[in-house]
Design a protein around this nucleic acid. Structure first.
Length: 253
DNA sequence: ATGTCACAGTCCCTGTGA
């Protein structure tokens, strides 16, 4: 079993990279963020021809999350269940695993109202994690827009006073972990930065100026079966890449 | 060091969000 998460920064603009990547990597389950599409334009048919069922919660210009699966996909829930909320979370059950594709708000700046929205959104995500069925394997994957520790940031001194590294944000990740979720990539790669995002600007990728903000949080049931977790840096190279690389994990059957 | 990208409206440039 291979599971991946990838913020594609527009599925329409990225299809020329995503479609061949799905063929090559052949993950069983993929959590996608920032599709930037409505359900009407989402490539359900194209995904079907390469073996994927899909569920999408789209908004149009911004946000948009999806789950792709070649091992079944049922019991889809879009969002937290509010009216007029942004399209930032979708859940489904695939091969008995409760899968959540998450796109945490950016926060913009510590003094920006969007930062409070980010913290509130993370608190609501923690309630979803607390209220889950603990007899069922669970994974919360996606773009968390938080670097959980200084190891996950190429230069913490540059990020002093910035979002993505503040203590309230890191506390929110710890609150999620306190529900029995494990930051799998970190557990399996202690001491390795494993960056997942590099700014398009200033040649950040080739300079190594990255952050690890795309996470796979898995429960103990899945963690016990995990054999590997890694970042596919190749997907960040080449023509018109997303600014995020995919994160993958492999599990024994 | 705002050295980039994608989207949509103001529509071939500009504002917004990342």
């Amino acid at each position: 079993m291979k599971i991946a998460t990838w913020n594609v920064n527009s599925l329409n603009a990225r299809w020329h990279r995503v479609e061949p990547w799905l063929r090559e990597q052949s993950p069983d389950i993929v959590m996608i963020q920032e599709t930037k599409q409505t359900d009407e334009t989402f490539p359900f048919v194209e995904l079907s021809t390469i073996g994927y069922e899909a569920a999408h919660y789209g908004q149009g210009r911004w946000n948009g999350v999806a789950i792709l699966s070649r091992v079944g996909l049922v019991d889809v829930v879009r969002g937290f269940g509010d009216d007029d909320e942004e399209a930032r979370i979708i859940a489904a059950t695939c091969a008995g695993i409760r899968v959540h594709s998450c796109y945490v708000p950016n926060g913009r700046a510590l003094e920006d109202p969007h930062y409070q929205y980010k913290l509130e959104w993370l608190a609501r995500l923690a309630h979803v994690a607390e209220d889950r069925d603990f007899s069922q394997p669970a994974i919360f994957g996606g773009d968390f827009n938080v670097a959980p520790s200084d190891l996950d940031c190429y230069d913490p001194s540059i990020f002093e006073g910035a979002t993505h590294v503040s203590e309230p944000e890191r506390d929110a990740i710890r609150t999620l972990e306190a529900t029995g979720l494990i930051d799998l990539t970190r557990r399996l790669n202690p001491g390795e930065p494993c960056f997942t995002w590099w700014d398009y600007r200033r040649g950040s990728f080739h300079r190594g100026w990255g952050l690890r903000i795309d996470l796979l949080l898995v429960d103990e049931l899945l963690s016990a079966k995990a054999t590997a977790s890694y970042v596919d840096r190749e997907a960040r190279k080449g023509e018109k890449p997303s600014d995020h690389a995919p994160v993958l994990a492999e599990f024994a059957d």
